[in-house]
Amino acid sequence: MVTTLTPLEAELLELAGSVPDPELPVLTLRELGVVRAVHAHGTDAVEVELTPTYTGCPAVEAMSLDIERVLREHGVREVTVRRVLAPAWSTDDITDEGRRKLREFGIAPPRARTASGPVGVELGPTRTRATRPGDEPLPVRCPHCGSAETELLSRFSSTACKALRRCLACREPFDHFKEL
């Protein structure tokens, strides 16, 4: 997407993107890839486009309030946060820096998706192991010990965006930010 940002919009986009995620405060909204655009109408009124990770994600309201607060503190009088659904957010929108931080936080980052469209979630083995590239889907690695030998415990974990897995090497359970 090529859009021309005014210097003010670029500055405000940076500010809105620096807001920490309310549930995973190690990540900023920019690293999560959910702040889509900032439109400034004059210097007083600003509209921010925010996309949810999941349609029902309850963190969106907290994100909106945080963005409004930060921009108001910066002197913007009128802030509107608009929720946009299309194009749908994907875990591929998480930046490399965001992935690194997730891993450090003890959450296995999502693997890169290979195709567009719905995720091909199909019945199959719930365990992963290291294989030669191209043989099988990439393994989900344990964020604690790095082992590729891990198993799925539940498709759904503490939040909709995570699955619960266990490492077969160090036996630690861990969250996996599942591919969407």
Partner: peptide
């Protein structure tokens, strides 16, 4: 279309479950 494009990815996990 926008909602469906978003929700179908979630529904894939529901179906799998």
């Amino acid at each position: 279309a926008p909602l469906a494009g978003k929700a179908v990815k979630e529904t894939a996990y529901h179906r799998d479950h």
